[in-house]
């Protein structure tokens, strides 16, 4: 199973623990990754302030064209924003010939051309459909013995097409949690947006969104929250202190990437494999007791 891994800008900085845990987990599950040579940013969700839609399409088309030229494997995007941007542009280019022609005319400035043969996929899609739940279960060495996890899906990882999961009632994230022995808790706000890319400039408004999500997950029993998006992780984890101050709450909920929990369950080192030491709110206190008390 060979793929292009398009990890994007965040996973090299604020989302470093995602990339750090993702690689060993995916490799252990038989996936091989290549980098799209000289890739560029996807534009994320706030570029529209400075760029018109066509420029953002060109940005993504360049990556698609580079991938097509260098092997044509499926592109796996772990960052939800990268996924949604690239997947959306890819669909539009595949479905609209006139647009593809227009974009290709621009791409020709760099000697590039995109025919439309690439598939863009989210990491959850690949884990669920290519690796599969049974294969994952087979590899679990240290099951998480009923650790109550709030599988926070957020908004962008399954939208807008719902290609591998429901856009309203997603299950893949929870299925993976179950496969590694955790107990996903149900909470209604699992798809409520956290404020995404505009959290920093609109902090006063977006803190309320995150407070609601944290309150909902913990009141339904979550001891820890897992996510697959660097913006969700950042917004849910980083601002808990400020939210506590603002609303008089007492949140100290560890926020981890799903791949970090998977690394623990696959028996990897808590530091070298799961990168738990990179989290701001230490998740070890919640995770260690369940794996040490278990088989």
């Amino acid at each position: 199973m060979r793929y292009f891994l398009y990890w994007g800008c965040s996973l090299e900085a604020s989302g470093a623990n995602y990339l750090y845990s993702l690689r060993p987990v995916c490799e252990a599950l038989g996936m091989e990754f290549e980098e799209i040579e000289d890739w560029n940013c996807c534009g994320a969700s706030v570029s529209y302030a400075g760029a018109r839609d066509l420029a953002i399409k060109v940005l993504n088309a360049r990556n698609l064209a580079l991938a097509e030229k260098k092997g044509g494997y499926d592109i796996v995007a772990p960052c939800s924003s990268c996924y949604i941007q690239m997947n959306k542009v890819n669909h539009e280019l595949q479905e609209d010939e006139a647009l593809r022609e227009k974009v290709n005319q621009i791409l020709s400035e760099a000697g590039l051309n995109y025919k439309g043969s690439i598939r863009v996929r989210h990491i959850l899609d690949v884990l669920y459909n290519d690796v599969g739940i049974d294969a994952l279960k087979d590899r679990v060495i240290k099951p998480l013995n009923g650790l109550k996890v709030g599988g926070y899906v957020g908004c962008q990882s399954v939208r807008p097409y719902g290609e591998y999961d429901s856009v309203e009632r997603p299950k893949v994230h929870d299925e993976i949690l179950k496969a590694i022995g955790a107990e996903p808790v149900k909470f209604p706000k699992k798809m409520q947006c956290c404020g995404s890319g505009i959290f920093l400039p609109e902090m006063e408004l977006c803190m309320g969104l995150v407070k609601d999500i944290l309150e909902d997950a913990t009141s339904h029993g979550a001891e820890i929250i897992s996510t697959v998006c660097p913006m969700c992780a950042m917004n849910l984890e980083m601002y808990q202190g400020r939210i506590n101050k603002r609303y008089g709450t007492e949140f100290k909920v560890p926020i981890v990437y799903l791949t970090q929990l998977m690394a623990v369950a696959l028996g990897m080192d808590l530091k070298k494999g799961a990168a738990l030491h990179m989290n701001f709110i230490p998740p070890e206190y919640v995770i260690k007791p369940v794996i040490e008390g278990g088989i």
Binding site: C41, A44, V46, S47, A49, G50, P201
Partner: peptide, 27 residues
């Protein structure tokens, strides 16, 4: 919304100047 507009414009500037975003430079 001046702050949000500025943030988005600065984000785009990162993309245009480097091809990638440097989070600390953006902030």
């Amino acid at each position: 919304r001046k702050k949000t507009a500025t943030f988005g414009q600065e984000f785009w500037r990162q993309v245009y100047e480097r091809g990638r975003v440097d989070e600390k430079d953006l902030s």
